[in-house]
Design a protein around this nucleic acid. Structure first.
Length: 555
RNA sequence: GCCCCCGUAGCUCAGCUGGAUAGAGCAAGUGGGUUCUAACCAUUAGGUCGGCGGUUCGAAUCCGUCCGGGGGUACCA
């Protein structure tokens, strides 16, 4: 409908003034109408006429063309405002989002925690954003594969392994049985190893040689040596922990790509690229000279002959393409690697320009602690992913006297998603996350309230019967429900889930206002209102599902 | 030094492909309980949209410049 109206405007402008222009309708304040356009203001510049005059001319020519419009008028400095007929408004309730990605395959990559390190608040944030973005793509019709990339080889592993060996007194895998808090223990080992690497030259050299030994485990297919046994055991602890955590937050991945797998392809590819002259040797390393492309130089193979993250990422990209044949790839990470990723994608462009073009790097900010404290997993002063959820649970329990994992998760996810992706998120452990106002629990509550009404009546009552016209409050709610599909379209186009959040909050507010002033059950208008309540609850639930937030029927 | 991102109410943020009185939440003040869930609703106060210039009929939005914060800048990721 929106497009039809836009087209009608474009046609009239073309006929009247012989100009082609893109007409875009906006959703104005309710007092002005349901749709609005500023074409007259735009045209006044080109034609040198007063915008109001043009607006009048356009509207009088449109008058009888638009069946869905009940009222059309000129306001302000030259805006054209339209009010839809109730039937038109009603038809928007059933609109589904554009299937702009129908038949397309998309690979999303996100979360990317490293085995042998702690999973911190940043990983939680990326996971929540990645889930929402993946669902957005799905709702536009795409087949989405979610993948997860993690460093099971590399210097950070060597640092942790070094400390593990210290802790258990050498290569004694049987000593690992005594470790209880496994994930915590590993992250402590990482902190110790990192500190030693920076401060102690002997340890540093040992860590460098351990790094090579870890790679060798994969070259040799070693499962049995004591060193390898320790490595595999601790690695599996990490993956067990990840799986448990993802299950808790409602994430799932179609495939894990450990770096040990992609390193091989990547190294091979980097060597090919060296021969082809895309990469070059420099100070014993193999690098890409980014300066020639307005980027900076990065190392792909270090002087030890080992692949860096750059090569592993190259290998990952190749693997994703081979495994899923995607039309589009989306990588979601923190914005600290934005320049880095440009270099990797520039290299990809040299051997697969099609997929390089089809890759989108979405970046979000860091999770910052209120008060300006910086988190560093190297130093160990980090906020763990589980701590964030646990804090939300405690806050919820204190506030309501009940335990609810669903509410805590809704609070955390919504708090992360309601901001536009890109900037940093400030998290205050003392205040946890919001449970009221513009928050996840508010939306869940606003949903449960509506379901509670519906549960009190026969389900047949909520079917759409003959609906004549709507009262003011009813119409406001109806109008808001009808904005759902448009909002999703916008979010899909921009890959920005926060528009959904803003919309759902406005929707829930609209319902709460309605609820406050109007009865549903035992009112003469019961059937109309039940229909509205049902449409509203379904829309809210759909929206929350897009954000990967549960919408329970009771709270 | 060079490159990238950010600066909107006391706090946390929407709004940014230029347009109607700059919007929310929290915090502060006030009011709302016989009625479908008060995790709610209504209402008051709070803003030189970091500063200065420019483009424009019109700038929070575009351009320039300065200030402030963050990130990146070769063998970490």
């Amino acid at each position: 409908m929106r497009q039809e109206i836009e087209q009608a405007f474009a046609n009239v402008c073309n006929e009247l003034f012989n100009t082609v222009l893109e007409v875009e309708l906006t959703r104005p304040n309710e007092q002005f109408g349901d749709y609005s356009t500023n074409v007259a203001l735009q045209l006044s510049k080109k034609l040198g006429k007063s915008p109001r005059e043009l607006a009048e001319q356009i509207t009088s020519n449109l008058q009888n063309q638009l069946l869905n419009i009940k009222e059309i008028n000129v306001a302000g400095s030259g805006f054209i405002n339209m009010r839809l007929t109730d039937d038109a408004l009603l038809s928007l309730v059933n609109a589904i989002p554009n299937q702009s990605l129908a038949g397309k395959t998309v690979v999303t990559e996100y979360s990317d925690p490293n085995p042998f390190k702690v999973m911190h608040a940043g990983h939680l944030y990326t996971s929540v954003v990645g889930d929402a973005v993946s669902k957005l793509l799905e709702t536009a019709g795409a087949k989405v594969y979610r993948v997860n990339f993690g460093g099971d080889v590399g210097l950070h592993v060597a640092k942790t392994m070094w400390a593990i060996l210290q802790e258990i007194g050498g290569e004694n895998p049987e000593k690992l049985n005594k470790i209880t808090e496994k994930a915590e223990w590993l992250s402590d080992c990482y902190v110790t190893g990192t500190a030693k690497y920076d401060s102690d030259n002997i340890a540093k050299n040992e860590i460098i040689s351990i790094n090579k030994r870890v790679y060798k485990i994969f070259d040799d297919g070693d499962k049995d040596s004591p060193f390898a046994q320790i490595y595999w055991e601790c690695r599996s602890w990490s993956y067990d922990y990840f799986n448990e955590f993802y299950k808790r937050i409602g994430s799932h991945f179609d495939k894990y790509y450990p770096e040990s797998e992609t390193a091989k392809f990547g190294l091979q590819k980097a060597k090919e690229l060296l021969e082809q002259g895309v990469l070059e040797k420099s100070n014993g390393a193999v690098v890409f000279k980014g300066e020639n492309h307005g980027l900076h130089t990065r190392v792909f193979i270090n002087s030890e002959g080992l692949p860096t993250y750059e090569s592993k990422d190259l290998g990952l990209t190749i693997a994703k393409i081979d495994d899923f044949h995607p039309d589009k790839m989306v990588i979601i990470t923190g914005n600290d690697i934005v320049e880095y990723m440009k270099v990797v994608l520039k290299v990809l462009e040299h051997f697969d320009p099609v997929h390089a073009q089809a890759t989108k790097h979405l970046t979000h900010g860091m999770v910052r602690l209120a008060g300006g404290t910086k988190m560093s997993s190297r130093k160990g002063n980090i906020l763990k992913a589980v701590d964030v959820i646990d804090a939300a649970q405690m806050a919820n329990e204190t506030a309501t006297g009940q335990k609810s994992e669903s509410t805590a998760l809704a609070a955390v996810k919504y708090a992360f998603l309601k901001n536009r992706i890109g900037g940093d998120i400030v998290y205050d452990p003392a205040e946890s996350v919001a449970l009221e106002g513009n928050s996840g629990p508010y939306l869940q509550y606003a949903h449960a309230r509506a379901r509670s009404i519906l549960n009190k009546t026969q389900s047949t009552d909520s079917r759409q019967t003959t609906i004549g016209s709507f009262e003011k409050d009813e119409r406001s709610l109806l109008r808001k429900i009808g904005e759902y599909a448009e909002t999703v379209d916008k979010s899909v186009q921009e890959l920005t889930p926060h528009h959904i959040c803003t919309y759902l909050y406005e929707l829930a507010q609209e319902f709460n206002r309605f609820y406050e002033h109007n009865r549903v059950i035992d009112d003469p208008r019961q059937s109309v209102r039940l229909f509205l309540t049902k449409s509203y609850a379904d829309t809210l639930k759909n929206g929350l599902e897009l954000l990967n937030i549960l919408a329970p029927n009771r709270m």
